[in-house]
C-alpha cells in the first residue's frame, strides 16, 4: 500500500510538473521538493517491504538470509545494525565505550535495575496506608464515643497487618534502590579478548558495612523459545570467576570504597554473541551483602571479541 501510494503520488507530482511546468515551484524549500522527497521515501520503504515479502515467498532459507546480508552491506543500513560487518553477530560496543574513565580508560555503564517492583510497592503502600488510616480513625472515634463498631474493628485488624507488611516491603524495596550509593566501574581495555589481561577499578559510594564485597566476571547464555503460544527465555551461567574480593569493609559517606584488580581472560572462551533468539553475554557483577538489609548486585555488561590469530581486523 505504502509503495503504491508513494509511486502513484510521486508519478502524479512529477508528470504534472513536466506537462505543466511552473519554474517557481522548483525553487529549494518549496513544497514540490518536499513532496518528491516524502513520496520517494514512501516508494523506497514500501518497495523494500514488497521485495521482502516477495523473497520470503518461495525462496530457500539460505537465499533469504543471503539477501538480508546483502542489504546489510549498504552503508546506511550496516551503520544501524546491532553488529559490525567485521564481527558479525557480536553487538557493537558504542554504548560501552563512549564514557571515558577517571582512573582507567573506559567507565562502563550499569545495566538498568527494573523499577517496577518499587513502583508497585509504592502504590500498594500509599493506597493501603490511606485506607487503613481512615478505617482506624473511624474505629477509634467509635470506641471513644462509647459506641464501638465491632464489625469494623475486626475488619481493621487484617487491614493493619497487611499495611504493616506493605510498609516493610516498600522500605525494603526503597533500600535496594537507594541504600547503596552509586557504583563506578572502570576498565583498561574494551572489548576484552581471550588470552588477554585487563585492569579494573571499582568505586562504591554510600554509608554501610559489608562483610564481603566481590566482583565477578560472568558469561551467560540466553535462549528464547517461542513455539506455539509459549514464549520463554532461559539464561544459564556457563562461566564465572571472581576477580576481586574484599572482606569486612566499611563505607562512609563522602569516602567511597575503591579497589583495583587485574584479571586474565582465559583462552578458549566463547565471544559475545547475539542472534534473533540466542545470545552469549559477558558482564561484571559487583556484589555486596551488608550486615543487615537487602544485598546489592550491580551488573556491568562488557563485550568479549574472538581471539583472532589470522582473522581480518
Amino acid at each position: 500500500m505504502l509503495f503504491l501510494l508513494g509511486a502513484v503520488a510521486l508519478t502524479t507530482v512529477i508528470v504534472s510538473q513536466i506537462l505543466n511546468p511552473t519554474p517557481e515551484v522548483l525553487r529549494p524549500g518549496f513544497g514540490f521538493w518536499l513532496m518528491v522527497v516524502v513520496m520517494a521515501s514512501f516508494v523506497l520503504l514500501g518497495g523494500g517491504g514488497v521485495m521482502l515479502t516477495a523473497f520470503q515467498a518461495g525462496a530457500s532459507i539460505e537465499r533469504r538470509s543471503a539477501l538480508v546480508r546483502q542489504a546489510a552491506g549498504i552503508d546506511l543500513i550496516s551503520e544501524a545494525l546491532p553488529s559490525s560487518q567485521q564481527h558479525p553477530n557480536i553487538p557493537r560496543d558504542a554504548d560501552l565505550t563512549n564514557s571515558p574513565g577517571v582512573t582507567l580508560v573506559f567507565r562502563l555503564p550499569t545495566a538498568q535495575m527494573p523499577v517496577w517492583r518499587l513502583t508497585l510497592a509504592t502504590l500498594v503502600f500509599l493506597l493501603l496506608t490511606a485506607v487503613t488510616s481512615v478505617v482506624c480513625v473511624i474505629v477509634v472515634n467509635h470506641h471513644l464515643a462509647q459506641t464501638p463498631d465491632w464489625f469494623l474493628t475486626l475488619f481493621a485488624v487484617p487491614l493493619v497487618i497487611a499495611n504493616f507488611w506493605a510498609v516493610k516491603y516498600f522500605f525494603t524495596e526503597l533500600g535496594v534502590h537507594t541504600r547503596h550509593g552509586p557504583t563506578c566501574f572502570e576498565i583498561s581495555h574494551h572489548p576484552l579478548r581471550p588470552n588477554s589481561e585487563c585492569e579494573i577499578f571499582v568505586s562504591q559510594a554510600g554509608r554501610f558495612s559489608l562483610p564481603a564485597f566481590t566482583v565477578a566476571l560472568v558469561c551467560e547464555e540466553e535462549a528464547t523459545y517461542s513455539q506455539g503460544t509459549d514464549i520463554r527465555t532461559e539464561t544459564r551461567v556457563v562461566y564465572e570467576t571472581e576477580v576481586l574480593r574484599q572482606e569486612d569493609i566499611r563505607i562512609e559517606a563522602g569516602t567511597p570504597f575503591e579497589a583495583h584488580s587485574r584479571l586474565s581472560i582465559p583462552g578458549g572462551v566463547m565471544h559475545s554473541f547475539q542472534s534473533g533468539h540466542n545470545a552469549v553475554r559477558w558482564k561484571f557483577v559487583v556484589r555486596g551483602t551488608p550486615v543487615s538489609g537487602p544485598s546489592m548486585a550491580r551488573t556491568f555488561p562488557v563485550l568479549v571479541y574472538p581471539d583472532n590469530q589470522n582473522g581480518q581486523e
Binding site: I61, E62, R63, S65, A66, R69, P88, N89, E221, E222, A223, T224, Y225, S226, Q227, T233, E234, S275, G276, H277, N278
Partner: peptide
C-alpha cells in the same frame, strides 16, 4: 544455532 531456544541462521556465502 541449536539448543533450547528457537534456531537462528546466518548465511556467510551464497551462490545460486
Amino acid at each position: 544455532t541449536e539448543g533450547k531456544g528457537d534456531e537462528d541462521l546466518g548465511v556467510h556465502y551464497f551462490e545460486r
